Simulated assay, not measured.
Amino acid sequence: MSTNTPPMPAWYVISLRPRGQHEPMRRAAARRGGGIIALSPWRLQALDDDVARAGLRAALDAPRVLFTSPMAVRAAALLQPLRPAEDQQWFAVGAGTAAALRRAGAGDVAAPRRMDSEGLLALPGLQRLDGIAVGLVTAPGGRGTLAPALQARGGEVRRADVYRRIPLPPSARALAALRGLSRPAAVALSSSDGLRRVMDALPADLAARVRLLPVVGASDRLLELASTLGFTQGFRASDARPASLVETAASILG
Rank of each mutant, 00 (worst) to 15 (best):
M1T: 11
S2R: 14
N4S: 14
T5H: 13
P6M: 12
A10D: 13
W11E: 04
W11P: 01
W11A: 03
W11L: 04
S15F: 05
P18K: 07
G20P: 05
G20A: 10
G20C: 11
E23T: 14
R26W: 08
R26Y: 05
R27P: 03
R27W: 08
A29E: 07
A29W: 04
A30M: 08
I37C: 02
I37E: 02
A38V: 10
R43A: 13
L44T: 13
Q45E: 15
D48S: 13
D50A: 15
A52P: 06
R53Y: 06
R57K: 12
R57M: 12
A58F: 09
A58V: 11
A59T: 09
D61E: 15
D61M: 13
P63D: 15
V65N: 04
F67C: 01
S69H: 06
S69N: 11
M71R: 14
A75E: 06
A76Q: 08
L79G: 09
P81T: 04
L82E: 00
L82H: 01
R83W: 12
D87N: 14
D87T: 14
Q88G: 13
Q89D: 14
W90T: 03
F91E: 02
A92W: 02
T97E: 05
A100M: 05
A100G: 05
A100E: 02
R103P: 00
G105I: 03
G107V: 06
D108H: 11
D108N: 12
V109F: 04
A110F: 13
A111M: 09
P112G: 11
R114V: 08
M115E: 15
D116C: 00
L120D: 02
A122F: 12
A122K: 11
P124A: 12
P124C: 13
G125H: 09
G125F: 10
Q127K: 14
D130S: 14
G131D: 12
G135Y: 06
G135F: 01
G135Q: 05
G135N: 08
L136V: 11
L136A: 10
G142F: 01
R143V: 02
L146K: 04
P148D: 07
R158N: 08
R159F: 00
R159T: 15
D161C: 14
Y163E: 03
R165E: 06
I166V: 15
P169M: 14
R173M: 08
R173K: 13
R173E: 15
A174T: 09
A174V: 07
L178R: 00
G180Y: 08
S182Q: 13
S182M: 04
R183Y: 03
P184Q: 00
A186W: 02
A188D: 11
G194L: 06
D200G: 09
A201G: 13
A201F: 10
V210E: 04
V210N: 00
P214R: 07
P214L: 09
V216C: 06
G217S: 07
S219K: 02
L222A: 01
L223W: 02
E224I: 00
A226R: 02
S227I: 01
T228L: 07
G230L: 05
G230K: 09
F231M: 08
T232S: 15
T232M: 12
F235L: 11
D239C: 10
R241P: 06
P242S: 03
V246A: 09
E247H: 11
A249D: 02
S251I: 00
I252H: 07
G254M: 07
